Amino acid sequence: MDSIFSIQSEEEFNTAAISVFQYQFKHVRVYREFCNLLNRTDPKDYKEIPFLPISFFKTHTVLSDEYRKKTNLVFKSSGTTLNKRSEHHIPSTELYERSFLPTFSQQIVPPENAIIFALLPNYIEQGESSLVYMVDFLIRATQHSLSGFYLSNPKALIEAIQKAKTQDKTIVLFGVSYALLDFAEKNIDLSGVKIIETGGMKGRRKEMIRSELHEELKKGLNVSKIFSEYGMTELLSQGYTDGSEFFRPPNWMKIMIRDVNDPFHFLANEKTGGVNVIDLANLYSCSFISTDDLGVEAGKRFKILGRFDQSDLRGCNLLVN
């Protein structure tokens, strides 16, 4: 575990990825069967490792045999009554916390220096959300009385943010897109607040391209930029934007862009294709996932352009760009 979170080079990443693959091939039954069917069982480089389609998290228990009787925490994706929710079985919350805490601290702000608010009503309503777990942890880590979830009382949230502005702290607001738009339409002044939109209208509003969404939010909330998070139930790691359109993953997470017509061929920088994710924090499930997202890699950063047709509309930041 320690070697995963101390990766500093491509060589170290490759060594860790091969080690994680070998563990998961041995202990994660569905992944082993998948690799056997592909006849790809002995990769020497992380680029040769098979990527499990993300839909398997809906149809199978993607979990190490060592922990099948030891896990009692299951994160579930957001969804509708028409769609089965993906499930990510979590035997170790320590892995999740060791992933999201340093990433948030480095890319947004150390929580002890912040006051954090959350406007995530649909995630609370559906329950079993990895995003809610993360934000709750970060809120508690601020150790500040103003930090918290604000669901159905916008007036209380506005008052709390105004009080927070008198403190010598960075103010952060996590918000689902439709709830932030509700605020923006009321022309509520959130200047000085780092707003992190977590994507998705969840059926409450018409879907929008991200650039259009951000322009409306910036205008209505009186902020110069909007931050975004790329994360999903099936991943224990995230990437954030700095107000631009590009996400930056941590060192133990890598984005690879596959050819939409040949899933074993990876594209060069600036080429659009399917998004494959290596998330080494997914140690006890599967670290090698073929997502339903379309994206572009740009050096160590990446951009999400949308989703494949007929994919479920769910998760964080799956708006078309």
Rank of each mutant, 00 (worst) to 15 (best):
K225R: 15
I124S: 01
N14M: 03
F117L: 07
T272N: 08
D182V: 07
N39G: 13
P249S: 04
E87H: 03
T233K: 07
S147H: 13
F227Q: 08
T142W: 03
P102F: 04
Y67H: 09
G127T: 11
K194P: 01
R258T: 08
K155E: 11
N321P: 09
V109E: 10
T291C: 06
D189S: 06
S285N: 14
L305Y: 02
D279H: 05
Y240T: 07
L119M: 08
L95K: 04
S311T: 15
N276G: 14
C286F: 01
E216H: 15
V223T: 13
S19V: 02
I161H: 05
P110G: 10
S3P: 00
L146G: 14
Q22C: 12
Q24L: 15
N276E: 04
L63P: 03
E229G: 08
Q143H: 13
D2F: 10
Y123H: 08
N36A: 12
S130Y: 00
N187L: 06
C316L: 13
I108Q: 09
P43T: 05
R29Q: 11
L120G: 00
N72G: 07
F137L: 04
Q22V: 07
Q126V: 07
F117I: 06
N317H: 08
K186G: 03
G203Y: 13
E66H: 14
F302N: 13
L280M: 12
Y240D: 02
V172S: 01
L82C: 11
E33Q: 12
Y284P: 11
D42H: 14
N222K: 15
T59P: 03
G79P: 05
T233D: 01
Y240W: 02
T61W: 04
E215F: 11
I158A: 13
Q22P: 08
G295Y: 08
Q162F: 10
L221E: 13
L181C: 01
L221D: 14
L305D: 02
L101Y: 05
T71C: 14
L318G: 09
L157T: 13
I108N: 06
V193E: 03
D293V: 05
P50M: 05
V176L: 10
K69G: 06
F13A: 02
E112G: 01
T170N: 07
P154I: 12
D309L: 15
K58E: 15
K271S: 09
V62R: 09
G220W: 15
F57D: 02
T233A: 03
H88A: 09
